[in-house]
Computed example of a mutant assay.
Amino acid sequence: MLAPRHWVTTAEGSGIGDALVHHLFLTAVSVLITVVIAGPLGLYIGHTGRFRRVAIGASNAARALPTLGLLSALILLLGIGDVPPVVVLVVLGIPPLLAGAYAGLESLDRQTIDAARAVGMTEFQILRKVEIPLAAPLLLGGLRAAALQIVATVALASVFGLQSLGTFIIDGLAQADYVKMTAGAILVAALALLLDGVLAVVQRLVGPRGVSRGTDRHRTTARDGKKPVALTQDAH
Score class of each variant (00 low, 15 high):
Thr67Lys: 02
Ile80Thr: 14
Pro66Trp: 06
Leu108Gln: 07
Val91Phe: 13
Leu70Gln: 07
Gly81Leu: 12
Val87Ile: 15
Val90Ile: 15
Leu97Met: 14
Ala73His: 05
Ala73Asp: 03
Val83Tyr: 08
Ala55Leu: 05
Gly81Gln: 10
Ala99Leu: 04
Ser59Gly: 12
Ile75Phe: 04
Thr112Ile: 13
Gly93Asp: 10
Leu105Arg: 03
Ala61Lys: 03
Gly93Thr: 09
Arg63Gly: 03
Leu68Pro: 07
Ala103Ser: 10
Gly57Ala: 04
Ile80Arg: 14
Leu70Asp: 05
Arg110Cys: 02
Tyr102Thr: 05
Asp82Glu: 13
Asp109Lys: 01
Ser59Cys: 08
Val88His: 13
Arg63Thr: 01
Ala58Val: 14
Ala99Asn: 02
Leu105Asp: 02
Asp82Cys: 06
Ala99Cys: 02
Leu108Trp: 06
Pro66Lys: 03
Arg50Pro: 06
Phe51Ile: 07
Asn60Ile: 00
Ala58Arg: 07
Asn60Lys: 00
Ala58Gln: 06
Gly49Cys: 05
Arg53Lys: 09
Gly69His: 04
Leu92Ile: 15
Pro95Glu: 06
Val83Phe: 15
Ala58Gly: 11
Ala73Glu: 04
Glu106Met: 03
Ala58Asp: 01
Leu78Tyr: 15
Gly104Ile: 00
Val54Asn: 06
Pro96Ala: 06
Ile94Gly: 08
Val54Gln: 10
Pro66Gln: 05
Val86Leu: 13
